[in-house]
């Protein structure tokens, strides 16, 4: 079961170390972790995508809440969150393949970030699912390098904390 955990934390040096360290230490599987500022400079939002059964998720949530710097922890159902992700993908684009790729670019609605001699770097944004789909569509072409930000999420209903 894949879940989004959205954390608000005091913006202090080391807070990401504390969060990331806890995840590995307690043996949880993390698909992605993304951190950045919020509307309040003193508060950081950390979004994790984790997998595990309900019991594991309950433990991981409780362990996060225990950290001194953690203000709020939400397990956010996909339906109750705005989510988004960015990816930069460089694909091999020799002249004979280029038009095919450009065709796909139009269909997928992705942007071209850089045009190289034999490659194109594409900028993909959207929901995790649409980024997945775009990356998958690019598989038949040789993906030379890729960077993804990991999912960020904003719970829709503010202040609604799921009880555990």
């Amino acid at each position: 079961m894949k879940k989004i955990i959205s954390i608000l934390a005091r913006n202090r040096p080391g807070v990401l170390s504390h969060v990331a360290g806890l995840v590995t230490r307690r043996g949880y599987n993390v698909e992605s972790i993304a951190a950045g500022p919020t509307e309040n400079h003193a508060i950081t939002r950390i979004t994790l995508v984790v997998t595990g059964d309900a019991k594991v998720l309950e433990q991981v949530t409780k362990q996060f809440r225990k950290l001194v710097d953690i203000i709020k922890v939400d397990i956010v159902p996909h339906s109750l969150a705005l989510t988004g992700e960015l990816a930069l993908v460089t694909v091999s684009a020799p002249p004979e393949k280029r038009s095919e790729i450009l065709n796909l670019v139009g269909v997928l609605g992705v942007k071209i970030k850089n045009v190289g001699e034999d490659s194109l770097t594409l900028f993909i944004s959207g929901s995790a699912r649409s980024v997945d789909a775009a990356v998958k569509a690019l598989y038949p072409f040789e993906i030379k390098s890729m960077a993804r930000t990991g999912l960020v999420a904003l719970p829709l209903e503010k202040g609604e904390e799921e009880e555990d």
Partner: peptide, 8 residues
């Protein structure tokens, strides 16, 4: 006092 202990 530590909810993380309950049900661990």
């Amino acid at each position: 006092i530590d909810p993380a202990e309950i049900g661990k």
